[in-house]
Simulated assay, not measured.
Amino acid sequence: MKDFKIYYGLEFNPFEKGQPDIPVETSDYREAMGRLNYLKDVRGIGLFTGRSGTGKSFIMKKFSETLNPGLYKVIYMPMSTLSTIEFYRELSNQLGLEIYHKKIDNFRNIQAHIKKMVDEKRIVPVIILDEAQFLKTDILNDLIMLLNFNFDSSSYVILILTGTPVLNHTINRAVHEALKQRIVIQYETTGMNEKDIETYISIKLKKAGRNEPLVMPEALTALLNACQGSSRKLNNLMTHCLIVGAAANRMIIDNDTVMEAADEIG
Rank of each mutant, 00 (worst) to 15 (best):
L237G: 05
M117V: 05
Q181L: 10
I243R: 03
Y187I: 06
C241G: 06
L242V: 02
L91T: 14
L220T: 06
I128R: 01
K103C: 07
V215M: 05
L82K: 10
E98H: 07
M77I: 15
M77D: 07
V175Y: 09
I183S: 04
N150K: 15
V118P: 07
R108Q: 14
A32G: 02
K102L: 12
T49E: 03
I144D: 11
S83H: 11
N68T: 12
K17P: 00
Y88R: 15
K2N: 07
I203T: 08
G55D: 01
V157K: 09
S27L: 02
I85N: 15
I265S: 01
N255K: 15
P78D: 04
L237H: 05
T221F: 13
V166C: 00
L205A: 03
K73P: 03
R35L: 11
G266E: 11
E65I: 06
I45G: 00
G9P: 02
K62T: 04
M216Y: 04
P217M: 12
A174M: 13
I104R: 11
F87H: 13
V244E: 13
K115A: 14
T66A: 00
I59S: 01
G18F: 00
V42S: 08
T189M: 15
A112N: 10
L91S: 09
F107T: 14
R210M: 04
I253R: 04
L143D: 10
L10M: 01
V42M: 08
R232D: 04
F15N: 01
L234W: 03
S52E: 06
K180E: 14
I183Q: 03
G191R: 11
K73Q: 10
Y156G: 10
M145A: 11
N249W: 03
V118W: 06
V74E: 09
D119S: 10
A248S: 12
T49Q: 03
I85T: 15
R108A: 14
R108Y: 13
H101Y: 11
E218F: 10
